[in-house]
Amino acid sequence: MLRLTGLTKRYDRGDAALSGVDLLVPDGEVVALIGPSGAGKSTLIRCTNRLVEPTSGRVELDGEDITALSAAGLRTARRRMGMIFQEFALIERLTVMENVLSGRLGYVGFWASWWRRFPPADIQQAFHFLDRVGLAGFENKRADALSGGQRQRVGIARALMQSPSLLLVDEPTASLDPRTSRQIMRLILELCGERKLAAIINIHDVALARQFAHRIIGLRKGQLVFDGKPDALTPDALTAIYGAEDWSTLPDDDQDG
């Protein structure tokens, strides 16, 4: 369970990117985070695992206060938060297997990881996840030889390797075509269901958010302006999040049948 209390981030110059966000995500719930560019979606995700240091407020994961942790404690806590990125953020020059195994870096010592000597159980786990995301047999390919959708699958496998209880997902489909986007979203949802994972998915595609998420949160100028079920996302709610616009032309959810 993730609990954010009064989470605020102020960058050196400019307004607050986040101001006093309160949020509770129970285990197994997939939350889509929508909002205009610059609303603080990415900052919220990065404040949760402190890739960006929050200015004030608390982040608690399963009762542990993440914001109070020392550097070593933070590393241990980050293992429980798998992260998936917009541009995949794979290590381009390493093999698929090394990228997947890098999800275990928080669990193994430096020299073991330097010589790529991961425990046999980790390697079995990695082969299993590659199989699960549909990339069996790809382990020796280099990451830069894969297509966008395949890379995102490697990114998902890497996040799962951490044995997380929470997934932080930053625009997983922004670099993908519509069909691949749906496949990736479906995969993330299935995996969250199988493993009882909570997830915060930061996404700008409202139709995808509506179709796949259990719950939708709207962020505007760093403040929470909507929190509800997907079917509660009325034109009025969209206007509250994005500003006035004729929302009746929003594309339907079943484009690709």
């Binding site: 093999t95 297997m97 090394e98 046999p120 159980a121 390697i123 079995q124 082969f127 199989d131």
Partner: peptide, 16 residues
């Protein structure tokens, strides 16, 4: 879950 982990290889070497 009924995934038989033992079916997967437990060793992997980076291709030289």
């Amino acid at each position: 879950m009924t995934i038989r982990m033992a079916e997967y290889p437990a060793a992997w070497r980076k291709p030289p």
